[in-house]
Design a protein around this nucleic acid. Structure first.
Lengths: 311, 311
DNA sequence: GTCCGTCCACAACCGGTGGTTGTACCCGTA
DNA sequence: TACGGGTACAACCACCGGTTGTGGACGGAC
């Protein structure tokens, strides 16, 4: 399937004659004939009935036409996604399973006309550099970890606190608890592979562990969340933390338990970061949307690190 | 933009290494390197950062990835649309402005998971041949015109009567009427270019004209509905018929008037036709949907040709 | 009926794209 | 420091896809 052939097909279908399509595309009639013959060969069906007065679509050709147009539109959108001017709004978040993902879904529902691209950068340092360079327009991150104050041209607002939950297998000692207090977690092994030194999310869990005397292990290679959940499900002595708004896509039968944590509830403080002079028109819309719908931070009974910006 | 390059990009992004992608695609690593370099050149951005341990996506690469996947999905759907087995349900209708279009929109809303393709064939004869050959799965047509009884393997059910309206320009004698009776139309010139002899829709208008003594002219070449509407708007002596459910997309200011016709209201009888042994699973769903939502035919005060199948 | 105009397909030719093999370079690790 | 795994660059070559030239089919004008 060659996109040039598809383009040629559309031009010929619209024109009704190969010659006219050839003129539009600035090639010879023979080239159009060859392209369409090649397309027909690759599809295995005849798209036009050739007549001495032009070429008209077969039934298959008629059915194919809207799909061909959609294909070219998709190609155009793909190109636009990396085009510097007027590209989709590009937003970074820590992981697709974070609450920021839900916020962006809500934003998309409210403004389906705004094209979005979501990327996942490594840490706050990378994100800030990307925002300053214009590579991305906004980022959902926890700020500002010690030693990494935000530069003056970066603005931020805390938009959502995501409560953490404990995730255990069915044989874990706390598996049947309706909820657990932070104090109860002391002494239990909490496993979070992939915590990388120097990142803001590791700083968060370090602070959490230090504040309440928890044992958070980052040992072992990170084979991805599937492998993590698999191990958690099978290992009675292990548990892990997970964002309370994560929608787990997990086959039933593994018996994974999600247990709210209280006294206080640790929350992950998501802030929206953006560059003050980013000209992207959709950025203001996103900020207004989040300002209108933001809720649930600074709630009593929750805990976030000292360094999390207050509002 | 080469789809092979896009496929290669996705494979490399998923694998994280060009070599592995090359193995998957059964080409050499050098070929993958060249394809991606060409894609990057054509897009004008770098998609991967090459490291001695593989290649990882840049921010642009991350943003491009979902669009690339969508592009391939679109290509797949396009191919499937002409693939004999498991292609979308293919439905014929007389014109995209007919009431059948509204029925299909409603069906699509009710069953968005069912892929649809709409084609417009010439007349009932072509449609029946296409149904029997399996080229299409169903057709909205007026049946059964004299001399063209439906073959035994074709079933049909009348699904919707579409009331006709009169369309006039602002200077037409009937332009300010809230409604007109059929009797009032006698003596006025009704222009319907494109009426082709031997088709079921021409048979319909012939019957209509004969029954009520109307003057329906089919003279002149058919330059499309835009040209028709343009002429109607500017010519006080001309009017035309139009399906009462047509949503006209017409710039304001032309002053076109749509006037209901009464005593009786001529209705165009749309029946659904299909082949009894068509195995397409979505065909049964469509029939059930239409049976559940069908309404408005056989209403008193309406007129349809004698030959229109009763229910 | 015949000629002409229009339109598409086929043949021959040719240049450039895109594959291959071979090689250089880079970097983490033993 | 050698080694292994990764990517890029160079040279070569086949074939894809363009061009020009030509033939055939059909409709309309005379």
């Amino acid at each position: 399937m060659d996109l040039d052939a598809v383009r040629t097909f559309i031009a010929a279908a619209d024109a009704g004659r190969f010659q006219e399509a050839a003129a539009e595309l600035a090639v010879t009639q023979q080239a159009v004939s060859k392209r369409i013959a090649a397309l027909e060969r690759s599809l295995g069906v005849r798209l036009f009935t050739r007549t001495p007065r032009g070429a008209e679509l077969t039934i298959d050709g008629q059915a194919f036409l809207p799909h061909a147009r959609e294909l070219l539109r998709a190609a155009e959108r793909a190109v636009a996604s990396v085009h510097t001017g007027r590209r989709p709004l590009r937003v970074d978040m820590i992981t697709s399973r974070s609450a920021a993902s839900g916020l962006m879904r809500g934003f998309h529902r409210a403004h389906p006309e705004i094209d979005l691209d979501v990327v996942m950068l490594f840490d706050i340092e990378t994100a800030v550099a990307a925002i300053r360079s214009g590579a991305i327009d906004a980022s959902f991150r926890a700020v500002a970890m010690p030693g990494r104050p935000l530069p003056g041209d970066i603005e931020s607002v805390r938009v959502l606190d995501e409560p953490l939950q404990l995730l255990t297998g069915p044989a874990h000692a706390l598996a049947s608890a309706r909820s657990v207090t932070v104090a109860q977690l002391a002494g239990h092994r909490i496993w979070m592979p992939g915590l990388a030194p120097g990142t803001e999310w590791t700083a968060y869990y370090d602070d959490l562990a230090a504040e309440f005397g928890l044992t958070i292990e980052a040992t072992g290679p990170n084979f991805g969340s599937d492998a993590l959940l698999d191990t958690i499900a099978d290992t009675p002595a292990l548990a892990t933390f997970m964002g309370g708004q994560t929608r787990l896509v997990w086959p039933a039968g593994h018996g994974l338990r999600r247990i709210p944590v209280t006294d206080p509830t640790p929350v992950y403080p998501h802030s929206l970061l953006w560059r003050r002079d980013d000209p992207h028109p959709a950025l203001a819309v996103l900020r207004a949307h989040l300002a209108a719908t933001a809720a649930g931070h600074g709630t009593p009974g929750t805990w976030a690190p000292e360094w999390a910006i207050p509002r």
